[in-house]
Design a protein around this nucleic acid. Sequence first.
DNA 1: TCCAGTGTATTAATCAGTTAATACACATTC
DNA 2: GAATGTGTATTAACTGATTAATACACTGGA
Lengths: 130, 130
Amino acid sequence: MKVTFNKRDPVYVQVVRHFKEQIATGNLEPGQEIPSRRELANQLKINPNTAQRAYKEMEEAGLIFTQGNSPSKITRDENIISSVREELILEAVEDFVSAIRPIKVPIEEVVGILKEKYNDDVFERRDKND
Amino acid sequence: MKVTFNKRDPVYVQVVRHFKEQIATGNLEPGQEIPSRRELANQLKINPNTAQRAYKEMEEAGLIFTQGNSPSKITRDENIISSVREELILEAVEDFVSAIRPIKVPIEEVVGILKEKYNDDVFERRDKND
DNA sequence: TCCAGTGTATTAATCAGTTAATACACATTC
DNA sequence: GAATGTGTATTAACTGATTAATACACTGGA
């Protein structure tokens, strides 16, 4: 478990996003246990309350569930899981579109640059994340 | 002059971005006068100090220049202007790539969704902005 | 039993951004 | 020359979001 934080977005938002990505890619499986609030806080060097806030959001979104006082687990609801993936993709695309449209760049030019950048640095990146 | 603000980013940042877009598209021409700090604040319903901060950033970035106490003007440096366009595009693409890559979606699928969304709502949008 | 680890809740402190209130020098216009 | 409208600077207050500190209740196992 490792997350690289940016300074722009709130930490708890970034934590939620990280879990969503892990769920979307299947890296975290349905029913799988996730670290306790305190342990996550230790691992990521963040405050336990920040971890708690992230988990609370995920719980309310149905991404994880908690029984008694045992560690939370990833939801087993496949509908939720697949919609997480869709949501992440759509959100990224919509942000991108609203960023790029005001500049009035032809779509094909955008796609060209996009493909180029998408394949960039893929080797170093593979070392880091997988 | 009209800008729709989101709540995520600081207002002064959004103002700067708006001007960059206008410069990049040629909607604001080299040497063209822009509203005074106080007038911009009036138009956008923001605090004069926020307008001042935005202009200060733009001045430091060489996007605008100010002589004496007459209203600031768009730079006449074509290098800066074209690099603004490049910068906006590259930044958007890089943000998008780093948002989409962790989800491990095939690039062609992404491009498909992107093209679809890019052409979406183009009619209503045209009414509003042009 | 008791204790360590869990989830949960409450309150305080911190921080960035924004707004606000003034002030000053300058120049253009009336 | 006075007035108005520029740009610029300084300082303080406010506000909402975020993070931090602390406490409480529960439970499963040693």
